[in-house]
């Protein structure tokens, strides 16, 4: 069964040997399935993500790409009737195991959502530090805030009004604030569920730039239905369709030389 050493290069029904798969993967999905009630939304997905890379997940709406990332920090199971099976490993540890506390896991796997969702009752400063404060972690809060805001490329724009309401920021700034908030607790993995879909092109470009820098320190999984964005921002790309992983590999290969006709149809805009 699946307790055997995970097949790194031959994952899924369609093996996709890629050059960067030599190191031990940071994230590994093995035969992952997920349901909402009786709807099977993710079917036997197996793939791996090396550390310090960016994986883009593309596919038409309802293909299961959001569900996949929501399994990675176990947000999926918060929906009533939601279930999952298979294995999902970070550094070799099965995070779906009952021994893993989802609350602990979510401190290691940060998430940025489709729409900016800063806490409306908190200031910019308090939003960044929310994970610290609410978890009761002590420390030099001011330093953490500055570091996180710098990493999220927001520091220069807000350093003079850290105690203003978070809602006084523009949409793009709010989204970078949410990134800073996620970065503050120093996650190893950052999940981004269509982080730029509610933003204008300039704000989007900033987020993409940011993703490039972030992969120096962590591993990024980004869901997008913007093909250009996937091509620009990611090292590897996975194409999902109807809950199945159709193909995954180096981004360049997926966009220039896809193996699967369905992938080709999608990246060339024939459907989706």
């Amino acid at each position: 069964m699946i307790s055997a050493p995970p097949p790194v290069a031959s994952s899924g029904p369609h093996p996709a040997p890629a050059a960067s798969d030599t190191a031990r993967p940071k994230i590994e999905a093995i035969d992952l399935s997920a349901w909402y009630g009786t709807t099977h939304v993710l079917r036997n997905v197996s793939l791996s993500v090396p550390a310090n890379t960016v994986l883009a997940i593309i596919g038409p709406s309802g293909c299961g790409k959001s569900t996949f990332v929501r399994c990675l920090n176990r947000m999926h199971e918060l929906v009533p009737g939601a279930r999952q099976s298979g294995q999902l490993r970070i550094d070799g540890e099965d995070l779906l195991s009952r021994k893993v506390d989802p609350v602990d896991l979510r401190r290691r796997v940060g998430m940025v959502f489709q729409r900016p969702n800063p806490f409306p009752t908190l200031s910019i400063f308090d939003n960044v530090i929310a994970g610290f404060k609410l978890n009761g972690i002590r420390g030099d809060h001011a330093a953490v805030v500055e570091k996180s805001l710098r990493r999220a490329a927001l520091w220069d724009e807000v350093k003079d009004r850290l105690h203003a309401s978070a809602l006084s920021l523009s949409g793009g700034q709010q989204q970078r604030l949410c990134i800073a908030r996620a970065l503050a607790i120093e996650p190893e993995v950052l999940l981004m569920d269509e982080p730029a879909s509610a933003l204008d092109p300039i704000a989007t470009a900033k987020i993409e730039e940011l993703i490039h820098e972030l992969k120096q320190v962590l591993t990024v999984v980004i869901v997008t239905h913007n093909m250009q964005q996937a091509a620009r921002a990611s090292d590897r790309t996975a194409f999902f369709y109807m809950g199945e992983l159709i193909e995954h590999g180096d981004t360049e290969q997926i966009f220039t030389n896809p193996r699967e006709p369905r992938t080709e149809d999608y990246v060339t805009g024939k459907f989706g």
Binding site: M1, I2, S3, D31, S33, W35, T38, H40, R83, Q84, S85, G86, Q87, E93, D94, L96, S97, R98, K99, V100, D101, V103, D104
Partner: peptide
């Protein structure tokens, strides 16, 4: 479908080997 969910989790031996997370009981 519930049976597939049961059979697909890791065998107990492997789970035992996983590191324990701290602070869980109090929070639970």
């Amino acid at each position: 479908m519930s049976t597939s969910a049961e059979s697909a989790v890791a065998p107990p031996v492997l789970r035992e080997a996983l590191p324990q997370t701290g602070g869980v009981p109090g929070r639970r």
